[in-house]
Amino acid sequence: MTLSASSIVLITIVGLAGIGFYGILVSRNMIKLIIGLQLLVKGAVLAFILAGNQNGNINEAQTLALTIIVADTIVAVLGLAFAVQIRQRFGTLDIKALTTLKR
């Protein structure tokens, strides 16, 4: 069985999304969580570009990917700002420290 170029990219997309999802699930460090989110969104951007490549409509895919990259960068900025503020208020980056309602 020979792999076509698009299936190689597809395997990469699924792998990136899976690794990012796993990172979001298991990590307790807030900055590690944002790294997992970044990997997940990188898979999504790659998927959009692959779809445009297969569709013969790459410019529309590029436009959508641009929107995704902008939104994802701002999400990372806001998440890092939250992480810094939480670190200064709670003294740790562990998300378990945020469960202050539970006694």
Partner: peptide, 24 residues
């Protein structure tokens, strides 16, 4: 840009390795 932001935030927040187990 994102790497610069990460390095900046890690510099402020501190590079503490979280060794504890995951919540789930």
């Amino acid at each position: 840009l994102v790497t610069v932001l990460f390095v900046f935030a890690i510099n402020i927040a501190g590079d503490e390795p979280v060794e504890i187990k995951s919540l789930i």
